[in-house]
Structures are given as C-alpha cells and as structure tokens.
C-alpha cells in the first residue's frame, strides 16, 4: 500500500506550505472520505442484491445467464489494469519520462475499455436469453449493481482521457500528479468492488440463486 503512505508523507509530490485546499494530504484524505461514501453506496446496492437473489419470479436466474469464461476474462483485464496503473504511479513518483508514464496510462485505459466491452457483450448475451431488468426483481437488482460498477469504470476512463490531455496542456505539475494519484486510488477501489461483484453477485448468485 505505497499509496496510502503517500497521503501521510507528501514530500515527493510537492511542498505543504500552500493553501489548505491544495495541500496534498488534504486532497488525498478528502478522496479517501469520498470513496468511503461511495463504498456505502455500493454496499447498500449489494445488500439489496443479496435480498433479491431468490426473486427471479420464474424468469432466468444466475445459472441460466452467467458466462464464467467471459467473467474470468473481465476479471483478468481489470486486475491487470490495476497493476498497470500501479506501474504508472511508480514511474510518476520516480520522475521517469513522460512517455513511459503515458504508456502505462494508455495501457490501463485500453484494459478498462476492454473490460467495458466484454461487460456490455455479456449484458447483450443476457438480454438475448431474456435476462433484462424488467423481467424480475432479481434481474433489476443485478442491473442496478453491475452496471453501476461499469459506470464507475467508464467515469474512470473518461478521467484518464482528461488527464492525458492535461499532461500535454498543463505539464506534469503537482496538480496533475495529485489528480493522477487520486485516479489510481479510484481505480484500485473499483478493482476491489469488482472482486466483491465477482464473489457475491456472480459466484454467490450462482451458488444460492
């Protein structure tokens, strides 16, 4: 967890004498608090999913709908992207060249987009088997939760695009570095959520559904 330690010792990314709202410690801490709130948001939706596992109302359930091959691929893509975003963080910290930093960011972005593509493909497969949210409470809960994570990933990709643009327009200054640190945190956070989704939504649903 080299990232969390950075929130305590911000020395490597700027001086701490600036206004409070640009103090790295404050900014990173604020982002942790935000993720805490987001975690509650996810947690509540997870809870709803768990209560709805049996509510298939005669419609297709997990056993009919889930494609674990594709899910395995999605998991691998997302886990790898977590690794690459970590590498990008390290290159940034060690002030390696802008090109190598951008390289890893772009790789992460591509992996994220790959994940989203596969996820959308999964959804369309599910829909073709009758797995649409309007079919049952269970599917509503599924489509309330999994695409919520997908939306977060989409937002993360958009954030990455904006950051790439800012690296060119604003340079690798403290502002951009801090933003990237937060993006990396966010990306790891989404990875954790995905592990929750994989084990509770997919695996748990498959076992108990």
């Amino acid at each position: 967890m080299n990232l969390s330690s950075s929130s305590k010792s911000p020395g490597s990314i700027g001086n701490a004498h600036e206004a409070a709202h640009r103090d790295p410690a404050v900014v990173i801490f604020g982002f942790w608090v935000f993720m805490m709130s987001d975690l509650i948001f996810f947690g509540v939706v997870f809870a709803i999913y768990i209560t709805m596992v049996g509510a298939t109302a005669g419609g297709p359930g997990p056993k009919e709908l889930f494609d674990f091959g594709s899910l395995f691929a999605q998991t691998m893509l997302l886990l790898t992207s977590s690794l690459t975003v970590g590498i990008a963080t390290v290159t940034m910290r060690h002030e390696r060249s802008r090109a190598s930093f951008l390289f890893w960011v772009v790789i992460t972005l591509l992996l994220g987009i790959g994940f989203l593509t596969l996820e959308l493909y999964d959804f369309s497969e599910m829909a073709s088997k009758g797995g649409v949210p309007s079919r049952s409470g269970y599917l509503s809960a599924f489509f309330g939760l999994v695409p919520l994570h997908g939306l977060h990933v989409t937002f993360g990709c958009l954030w990455m695009l904006v950051l790439i643009a800012q690296v060119f327009t604003m340079g690798m200054g403290q502002v951009v570095k801090l933003r990237f640190l937060r993006l990396a945190l966010f990306w790891h956070f989404l990875d954790l959520i995905w592990i929750g989704i994989f084990s509770i939504v997919y695996f748990g649903g498959w076992v108990y559904g």
Partner: peptide, 29 residues
C-alpha cells in the same frame, strides 16, 4: 445519504425503465 440516494434512484429506475425493485409483481419488494 447514500442509502437515500440508492432508494430514490431505484424508485426512479422502477418508474422510468420498468425495473422491479419495489413493484408489487415480479419479485419486487
């Protein structure tokens, strides 16, 4: 606040996109 946002958004999904979180039929609760 998140539970409220979730509740309101799910009610919205029920109303706008025909989800079944809280409806009488099809397993809503």
């Amino acid at each position: 606040m998140p539970p409220l946002s979730v509740a309101a958004l799910m009610l919205g999904l029920d109303r706008y996109l025909d989800f079944h979180f809280f409806t009488n039929d099809l397993g809503g609760n």
